[in-house]
């Protein structure tokens, strides 16, 4: 058993716990900026899990993208919430018990699958540099059409978002 085999579950577990903790904070705090930044740190912890699972490119990409995404989320929350600072302690939840039930049910269902399936042997991953190269080749060869589709979808979403959000002109 090599050192990486011992440390890998440890780091995956630690960052996983951090992701779960910040995920809980998202819905526990009443300050909206805190909530958005807790989601950011949850996502960053997920990125760190990717790094621990030797998916270096994806991990760094996740950490980079989420910083921008969640900061923009924070500004929208401040714009559109009644009480972004959470000073008044407004309750902004509904159907609480049903939601808790649904969440726990989903978790238990997935956990049952996780523990019932026989997962088979662990395979060795390639070196990070090799991985980045192979991912590039994958994108440029087999998955090129999918990647192009993603690009077109982004363009469509940009146009759609602008069309929805733009102020109606007075005719």
């Amino acid at each position: 058993m090599s050192a990486s085999e011992i440390f890998q579950p440890f780091f995956v577990g630690i960052f996983g716990l951090a992701a779960i903790w910040f995920g809980v904070v998202v819905f526990r705090t009443s300050s909206m900026v805190r909530s958005a930044l807790a989601l950011l740190f949850s996502m960053t912890a997920i990125g760190a899990m990717f790094l621990a699972m030797e998916a270096e490119f994806l991990g760094v990409l996740q950490i980079m993208m989420m910083a921008t995404e969640m900061a923009i989320m924070a500004i929208f929350m401040v714009m559109y919430m009644m009480d972004p600072g959470g000073m008044e302690g407004m309750d902004m939840t509904h159907q609480k018990y049903a939601s808790i039930f649904a969440g726990i049910l989903a978790t238990l269902g997935i956990l049952a699958v996780v523990f019932l399936v026989e997962w088979g042997p662990v395979a060795e991953a390639a070196h990070p540099e090799e991985q980045t190269r192979m991912l590039g080749i994958e994108i440029m060869e087999r998955s090129m059409l999918i990647f192009e589709t993603a690009g077109v979808t982004i363009l469509t979403a940009m146009i759609a978002a602008t069309a929805i959000a733009i102020e109606r002109r007075k005719s």
Partner: peptide, 17 residues
């Protein structure tokens, strides 16, 4: 397991907020 718990939290949030 981490994925399952995060999914549960997310589902709770999406339904309850």
């Amino acid at each position: 397991v981490v994925g399952a718990i995060l999914f549960g939290i997310g589902l709770y949030g999406a339904l309850s907020q």
